[in-house]
Nucleic acid binder design. Structure first.
Length: 743
DNA sequence: TCTCCATCGTTTTTT
DNA sequence: ACGATGGAGA
């Protein structure tokens, strides 16, 4: 009896086929993660491959972590030497060691979307490009697409020929790249592009990694772009042990440059590739799978296949139409509440999937009302919050003073009386001398007509220099705390004394605890905890990575975020024409967009294991105006006999008392909602009648660990508890946020 | 230099 | 509806 006996014949074939290129076409729920983990175990145990020689690329950090854990469980040991991570993290790691070959510093900064926008804006201003005609967004997306396809500014300009607009874009692209280089920064796409460039320019480096990664696996291959394809094929070109797993029906990132040709043309690129299909689904009931199969069959551009299952038939797909979005949300909240009360499911068994992030709001309202714990994935990134970005920019400046953007952001935060005029003068001087902004600040006395601002600038420079000198000896945590202390950032917020300010302080505490976690993880892995490492990790996390499977909450997310996940109970909300499929895919494009939406729908349906509910509203507020939408065509594509329609339309006659009670509840709720907007990740309960701990008790906090309660103060809607933690010292927090447990 | 207010556009999805 | 942006006034 071996661990491989539990696999079906196809899965076993895939596991045992270790040499040479292999394409696994894995339908939804066909156990591909199982195949990948067993394959890694097989390589290590039976083929005696050194774990060190294995590279596995996953779509998210969360998937990477899960894969490592599962390999650990079946292979027992050695899994920590396997390199499992996302494309972006993998490339960042390689570049941190070798990017000096391309003339960058190895402590480069990674720019997020906001940073990119600032750079583009600046570039347009310098080039006199009118951003009313050339939208920053459009420019960025064109640049990004060029990078996805490894097109350089020069090439873009050549391709433009006589096209004026295209030429202008190429110009902006070139200038944008120059600005990034000057700041010693890379954007997300650059991580891949520069790694490919590195491989192409430095044979030695390429050879090293080719030898190192003798066995390569890529998950979610249908969503790779050309640059990523180039990256893996360069790596694999020596041994050709490249195993890719994907499903063309689940390709949903074309808008991000994913090239479906990568998977469809795999056999052309690797003529000796073996192809294995996994078509047995182990996840969903027959009804759910049938529905999915019928929907996806409407797509013309696909590899024909039909998933089947031996699972039970299961309940029908529930479909409900409501008068408006409120009732829709209320219904779903009610259903989850009921099922939980009756012990049919835990909260974490349920997920609500929608097309756009904006749709999460209604659910948030109703969930607070119904006291259901939930977590919203996506939306505004934690690290994109103002207070977080400010502090991170301090860290960035300490780490890489060439990052002008970071310096610009913090130079007058908190207010130091250094305004736009002064900054402009220094910037001009820096440009003229060809030095970075920070260097110019250091020699500010040489800047013409700088006047009284000089002393203020000197103060700032001294401050940063002081931090820099401490950075070597300090942990990231200490450094961050020092910055907070000396800038008075938190003090300023405390003085504001608003709900909003308190929420920001909460976020800052969260950031501190993230530095602690980082330190711990690095120590566990026996790696040095560096400032650059922390900043990199922070830049490359997706919100979905922070989902904790141990915690019992309902997950709310977009269909895109749900890729790769599964839930016993799935609710697909907003099944309306114009919402899903989005109006963009209907009005623009050539129909391929609509097919992508349909694949998205297919992904959604196949997330469900036991029960699937689709809902829609007749009337919906979108961007402040009321829309009347028809039922989504995707719903119509499911055969009638698979669907349970409930009792016609869910018409709810509002009773007087309901109007009143819900009204007052709504205003109550709205208050909470506003504070929550800064802390949407945690479920907030209303003030507990009594806390089950008191001053002097020992309590445990999820992140800060064990500590002793020093004080409890009445604070309006909530208790403010002061705790002295063993690890992180004294903290003040709100009882309902902190969820302290007496021990 | 900072703060307040009006105007504008934005949204489909994300590493 | 909402946030970002830019202009005007203090």
């Amino acid at each position: 009896m071996s661990i491989y006996d539990s696999l079906n014949p196809m899965q076993r074939q895939a596991v045992f086929h270790t040499e040479g290129p292999l394409l696994i076409l894995a339908g939804a729920g066909s156990g591909k993660t199982r195949v990948l983990t067993h394959r890694i175990a097989y390589l290590i145990q039976e083929k005696e491959v050194n774990p060190w020689n294995i590279l596995a690329i996953t779509f998210t950090n969360k998937a990477a972590q899960e894969m490592r854990e599962r390999v650990d469980r079946i292979a027992g040991f050695g899994s920590d030497a396997i390199w499992v991570s996302t494309f972006h993290s993998t490339c960042a790691r390689i570049l941190r060691r070798h990017i000096d070959n391309l003339g960058y510093d190895t402590n480069f900064t990674i720019y997020d979307t906001d940073d990119q926008k600032s750079v583009i804006k600046d570039v347009c201003r310098r080039l006199n490009v009118d951003t009313k005609i050339f939208k920053e967004r459009a420019l960025l997306s064109q640049i990004s697409h060029a990078k996805d396809n490894l097109i350089t500014p020069d090439q873009m300009e050549m391709d433009a020929a006589g096209d004026f607009n295209q030429k202008k874009t190429a110009m902006v692209y070139r200038e944008y790249q120059a600005a990034l280089r000057k700041n010693n920064a890379l954007d997300f796409d650059d991580l891949i592009v520069k790694t490919v460039e590195l491989f192409q320019n430095c044979d030695r480096v390429l050879e090293y990694y080719q030898e190192r990664f003798k066995y390569i696996m890529v998950d979610e291959y249908q969503d790779t772009n050309y640059a990523q394809f180039k990256f893996v094929s360069l790596l694999a070109s020596r041994y050709e042990n490249l195993c890719v797993v994907g499903d063309d029906d689940q390709s949903i990132y074309k808008f991000r440059g994913a090239n479906i040709e990568n998977i469809l043309g795999y056999e052309r690129v690797f003529p000796n590739a073996a192809v294995i299909r996994l078509e047995q689904n182990y996840r969903s009931t027959q009804n759910i799978l049938n529905a999915a199969n019928h929907v996806i069959a409407n797509n013309a551009e696909r590899k024909e296949k039909t998933l089947w299952t031996e699972n039970e038939e299961g309940p029908k797909i529930h479909f409900r139409q409501f008068m408006n979005g409120f009732e829709e949300a209320e219904y779903i909240a009610g259903e989850i509440s009921k099922a939980h009360r009756e012990g049919l499911c835990q909260y974490r068994d349920c997920a609500i999937l929608y097309r756009t992030n904006a749709q999460s709001r209604l659910f948030e309202e109703k969930f607070i009302n119904a006291n259901i714990p939930y977590k919203i994935v996506g939306g505004v990134n934690f690290y994109a919050r103002k207070e977080i970005k400010d502090l991170l920019c301090y860290l960035k400046t300490v780490d890489n003073a060439r990052d002008d953007l970071a310096v610009q952001r913090i130079i007058n935060v908190p207010k130091r009386g250094i305004g736009a005029t002064t900054l402009g003068r220094v910037q001009d001087y820096a440009d003229k001398m060809g030095i970075s902004l920070y260097e110019a600040l250091r020699v500010a006395e040489e800047v013409p007509s700088i006047g009284r601002s000089l002393s203020k600038i000197d103060g700032f420079v001294t401050f940063i220099q002081m931090l820099k000198s401490k950075a070597q000896a300090y942990t990231v945590e200490d450094l961050l705390k020092e910055i907070i202390e000396l800038t008075g950032y938190v003090k300023e917020l405390e003085a504001e004394d608003t709900e909003e300010a308190r929420a920001r302080i909460e976020n800052i505490d969260e950031l501190i605890s993230k530095t602690v976690t980082y330190q711990q993880t690095m120590e566990e892995q026996d790696q040095p905890a560096t400032l650059a490492g922390f900043l990199e990790e922070v830049a490359l996390v997706a919100d979905i990575d922070t989902v904790d499977p141990e915690q019992d909450y309902v997950l709310l997310m977009t269909l895109h975020s749900a890729k790769g996940l599964e839930f016993p109970r799935v609710f697909m909300a907003g099944m309306e024409t114009g919402i899903f499929p989005s109006y963009m895919s209907i009005n623009y494009g050539d129909g391929s967009e609509l097919e992508e939406e349909r694949r998205l729908c297919y992904v959604g349906i196949t997330r469900a294991m036991k029960e699937l509910t689709m809902t829609c509203a007749r009337q919906r507020m979108v961007r402040g105006e009321t829309q009347y939408n028809k039922v989504s065509q995707f719903v119509q594509e499911i055969p009638r006999d698979l669907v349970d329609l409930g009792h016609t339309i869910q018409e709810k006659k509002p009773k007087m008392e309901q109007v009143f009670s819900s009204d007052s509840k709504y205003s109550q709720m709205k208050q909470i909602f506003q504070t929550k907007a800064y802390k949407p990740k945690e479920f907030k309960v209303t003030k507990a009648d009594a806390l089950d701990y008191q001053v002097g008790d020992t309590v445990r906090h999820m992140k800060f660990g064990v500590g002793i309660v020093k004080a409890i103060a009445e604070g309006g809607r909530d208790y403010e508890v002061t705790v002295d933690f063993d690890k992180v010292g004294v903290k003040k927090m709100f009882a309902s946020f902190a969820k302290l447990k007496k021990i």
